[in-house]
């Protein structure tokens, strides 16, 4: 029985990756929720929006690297975020102008928006592959670890190490900063309140003189920020591969729906629920059990509930359960 080592192992393999992944999902789900709250459709193109944001961040990273501008020990991609966000704002506003605005004026059904966003998803995916190619890009430079497993072992004298990657720390810090800024904007500023008002009751917002075009523009701007940061952080953490973002769409939507579509707090909670479920269920508990149980009980197999190949099934199952039990999600979503 070795409780301390077991806990460290859990922290190393579940807590730390879970927090980082949860932050990425939360940011992604916030983007979905903003679009849903204002434009009232589920944006299937959001995964590719994240991917495109990450791609721009990488392109600018290369530019900065070639100019010799780095911010070691931080990875250079962080520097690329700001121009990438600007590019994504432009891209999203262009797509809104040429795709969604028409359907808004037509007051088309939500499912038409859904189909249009699917079209945009593949168009964006094609453009990404066209520009950066379908291969994996390594994006982490600078210091790889904040704390190495070996250092932790030396420090504490335990068998188990606890490693924290720079990318994980940056992910969490950036996510916290963005979420705080977003909530400050929505709760405290006049523009933010007008967004909430529009999301709450569109007609009354119009009667109050709130300009719908402006609200929509702000919504896409927020989406660009959230998606670019989420996409770049995911790429920084796991390596950038253009096709992974399509698969990320499922956990991102699951997070948003589990929390309650349209509810920002719900998106954050949902992100962590999905992330921790995924990490926990696909983790092989053999090591932890070895520390906790008497030797005779040591398991033969990995004691892994589900192979990592099925991690998407986890978010799907949670999604299905939520849809059956409480279709509006934990926070009864609807408005920003």
């Amino acid at each position: 029985m070795d409780l301390l080592n077991a806990l460290v192992a859990l922290a190393n393999y579940i807590l730390v990756p879970g927090i980082a992944y949860g932050s990425q999902l939360a940011l992604g789900a916030l983007g979905v929720t903003v679009v849903y709250g204002i434009l009232r459709f589920s944006n299937f193109a959001h995964g590719e929006t994240m991917s495109a944001g990450a791609m721009f961040a990488i392109l600018f990273m290369w530019l900065f690297q070639s100019l010799g501008i780095t911010i070691a020990p931080l990875p250079t991609i962080v520097l690329g975020l700001i121009p990438a966000i600007l590019c994504m704002i432009v891209y999203l506003l262009i797509t809104d102008r040429f795709v969604y605005r028409y359907y808004r004026e037509q007051k088309a059904k939500p499912v038409i928006f859904l189909v249009a966003s699917t079209g945009l998803m593949f168009l964006t995916n094609g453009i990404i592959r066209f520009i950066i190619g379908p291969d994996e890009q390594r994006v982490s430079d600078g210091a790889r670890f904040v704390m190495k497993a070996r250092e932790f072992k030396q420090l504490t004298g335990l068998n188990e190490g606890l490693a924290i990657k720079t990318s994980q720390l940056i992910t969490v810090l950036a996510a916290v900063a963005i979420v705080v800024a977003l909530f400050w904007f929505l709760e405290k500023t006049k523009s933010g309140k007008s967004m909430r008002a529009y999301s709450d009751n569109e007609n009354l917002a119009l009667l109050s003189g709130i300009n719908p075009d402006r609200v929509v523009m702000i919504a896409w701007t927020l989406t660009a920020i959230l998606a670019t940061v989420a996409g770049a952080l995911y790429g920084l953490d796991k390596g950038y591969k253009p096709f992974t973002y399509l698969q990320l769409l499922l956990p991102v939507f699951a997070s948003a729906i589990v929390g309650g579509l349209g509810s920002p707090i719900g998106a954050i909670v949902g992100g962590f629920v999905i992330a921790f479920s995924e990490v926990t269920i696909t983790y092989a508990f053999k090591k932890v059990i070895k520390y906790l149980a008497p030797d005779a009980w040591a398991p033969e197999g990995l004691v892994q509930l589900l192979s990592t190949d099925y991690k998407f099934a986890v978010s799907f199952v949670i999604l299905v359960v939520v849809l059956i039990v409480m279709p509006t999600g934990i926070f009864k979503g609807k408005s920003l």
Binding site: S42, L114, L249, I257, F312, A313, F316, V320
Partner: peptide, 24 residues
Amino acid sequence: IALGLRSDYFAIATLGISEIIVAI
């Protein structure tokens, strides 16, 4: 499970099940 809910929930559910089938 998903019919009778909103149209986007249905779309996401079908998207999810197809990914899972192929993963299996």
